[in-house]
Computed example of a mutant assay.
Amino acid sequence: MSVKQNVKEYKRELILEAAAKLFYEKGFQKTTIDDIGSALGVTKPFIYTYFENKYAILEQLFEQAYGELHVDLMQVLNNRKGAAKDRLQQFVTLYVAKNIEYQKFSAIMLEEEKSLSARKIGDIRRKQRDFDAKLARLIEEGVSNGEFHVGDPMIASLAISGMVRWTHRWYSPQGRLSAADLTRTMSDLALNLVGCAPA
């Protein structure tokens, strides 16, 4: 990548970071391009050089945050080696850690999905269905080999995913649990949910 391309990418990232902060604090609908420009000390034409409108900014935020999260979690779910219990713990630990790491993005993803284009929503829905199905298959595997005891692996999959996805709403670094404590607690809860006592 050339120096010019590096500079352009750096400026795009600055816009995305400023927009993410404002979308998180004010909400997408209440944030304007002027607000984003003011936060960066630049004019609207500067923003429009890199993004067509604020919807394009939102979609790029989704592409980055959801894309990275999806790739990392799918690597765990696609791994077929080791006990199902260990893989489920690894999955939940990573999922919780990523929700904490990307707390602002997680909030934006849940609150502002309705503002995306139909094409982007369709893409996200397809990825979510694939994600849920693979987590359910991991739980089914645990049921088949006697590690887990749960009647409906798909419902268990959705329950675990839902439990983790809302972490951003209530987790605070200044709270009672550290990030490491929370990941351990949540992975234990996931094991309890599938009828497997934590070690």
Rank of each mutant, 00 (worst) to 15 (best):
V3K: 15
K4Q: 14
N6V: 08
E9Q: 14
Y10Q: 13
K11Y: 08
E13Y: 11
E13L: 11
L14C: 12
I15D: 01
E17D: 13
A18K: 02
A19W: 01
A20K: 12
E25Q: 15
E25C: 08
Q29R: 15
K30E: 15
T31L: 01
I33F: 01
I36E: 00
L40G: 04
T43A: 15
I47R: 01
T49M: 11
T49R: 14
E52C: 06
N53R: 09
A56S: 15
I57T: 04
E59N: 12
F62Y: 07
E63G: 05
E63K: 15
Q64C: 04
A65P: 07
G67N: 11
G67P: 11
E68L: 06
H70Y: 12
H70T: 09
M74A: 04
R80A: 09
K81Y: 10
A83E: 15
A84W: 00
K85Q: 09
K85L: 03
K85V: 05
R87L: 12
F91D: 00
T93G: 09
Y95I: 00
V96H: 00
A97P: 00
K98N: 14
K98R: 14
E101D: 12
K104C: 09
M109S: 04
M109P: 01
M109I: 08
E111Y: 07
K114S: 11
K114N: 12
S115E: 09
L116R: 05
L116I: 03
K120T: 03
R126D: 10
K127W: 02
D130S: 11
K134C: 02
L135T: 07
A136T: 03
A136C: 10
E141P: 00
V143N: 08
N145P: 06
N145T: 07
G146I: 05
G146V: 06
F148G: 01
P153N: 03
M154A: 07
M154F: 10
M154N: 09
I155R: 15
L158R: 15
G162D: 05
G162S: 14
M163W: 05
M163R: 02
R169Q: 13
W170Q: 08
S172M: 07
Q174K: 12
Q174V: 05
A180M: 10
A180C: 08
D181M: 08
T183P: 00
T183M: 07
T183A: 11
R184F: 01
T185Q: 14
D188W: 03
A190E: 04
L191D: 01
G195L: 01
A197S: 12
P198F: 02
